[in-house]
């Protein structure tokens, strides 16, 4: 038996004037999974998420969100979805407690006080509950926002770049939290620019200029790209990058830290382009498994 789908939409389309922001996107997320939503800025991630939770009306497309028609029953869907906006969108001139209390009231939660107290305790913010939300640091704001989205026990979480501008430790904690929620059966669709976050997802989808162009597990997406990558490290590697760019077989050359990644779909051509530098002293060349980022840069380069 296949797992029921939390999100099952086909042909999702949104137009802003002349611009096609989202073009016939199909997404099917099984319940309880964590899906990563990747793509460059302006590729349509936020628009897609907003359509799923009823904040934007779709120009075309059909399907269900939590078993409900996402176009007609958006009000019912809203009650079961937790949506975390890209920019902190709780009230900065309300205290932490007042923000949680407001959300609990709007959703009409029973045992409101208890629920808010519990949440404050889980967050570890009991002592700071009367502090204004605007005074919190980026990491705390994001934790508060997640807690507020979770207050009404949604079955589906839509997170729009939740970890942008958050420090590495806070990011890790945040992802541990997401995995814990997923363990409790909550479905998560999270957009991100971070590869390490993408690798923590069950599946990823990659959207570019409104088109969904890759999907699957990280390994599948990498395999589907049919990409070969060589790593070049050592003295004079910076000068080499200029020479290799545009060489036959080299589709792109990019630095990852100190290492230069040379990628292309034709392995032999790539090897030939690197051949003249094989024996340069101090330069170290080896073939490597392409990373997810290699694949994404490749996909983006291909499109331009």
């Amino acid at each position: 038996m296949t797992q029921p789908l939390a999100i099952d939409v086909r042909g999702l389309t949104k137009r802003f004037g002349q611009k096609l922001a989202v073009n016939g996107v199909d997404i099917a997320v099984p319940e309880g999974e964590v899906w990563g939503f990747l793509g460059p800025n302006g590729s349509g991630k936020t628009t897609t998420i907003r359509m799923l939770c009823g904040l934007l009306s779709a120009d075309a497309g059909e399907g269900t969100c939590l078993g409900l028609d996402f176009r007609k029953q958006s009000e019912t869907i809203k009650r079961q979805v937790g949506y975390m906006t890209q920019r902190f969108s709780f009230w900065e001139d309300l205290s932490i407690r007042e923000n949680l209390d407001f959300v609990a009231r709007v959703y009409g939660l029973p045992n409101r006080k208890m629920k808010v107290n519990e949440t404050l305790e889980q967050l570890g913010l009991v002592k700071r509950q009367h502090q204004l939300a605007g005074e919190l640091s980026g990491g705390w704001k994001q934790r508060l926002a997640l807690a507020a989205c979770m207050l009404h026990d949604p079955r589906l979480l839509l997170l729009d770049e939740p970890t942008a501008g958050v420090d590495p430790k806070a990011r890790r904690d945040f992802w541990d939290e997401i995995h814990m929620l997923s363990g409790n059966g909550i479905t998560v669709l999270v957009s991100t620019h971070y590869m390490d976050e993408a690798e923590r997802c069950d599946r990823i989808v990659y959207i570019l200029n409104g088109n969904l162009i890759a999907r699957g597990s990280v390994a599948e997406v990498i395999a589907d790209a049919h990409l070969f990558t060589f790593l070049v490290e050592g003295d004079g590697v910076r000068a080499l990058s200029q020479k290799l760019r545009g060489a036959p077989g080299v589709e792109y050359a990019a630095f990852f830290g100190a290492a230069l990644h040379i990628s292309g779909r034709d392995r032999d051509a790539l090897a030939r382009a690197l051949e003249p530098y094989r024996n340069t002293p101090g330069l170290h060349i080896e073939e490597s498994q392409p990373s997810l980022e290699d694949v994404f840069i490749h996909l983006q380069e291909q499109a331009t």
Partner: peptide, 13 residues
């Protein structure tokens, strides 16, 4: 202006 409108809209009010 403050971006809280989007949040308000995503709630069932």
């Amino acid at each position: 202006e403050r971006g809280t409108y989007e949040n308000l809209l995503s709630m069932p009010a």
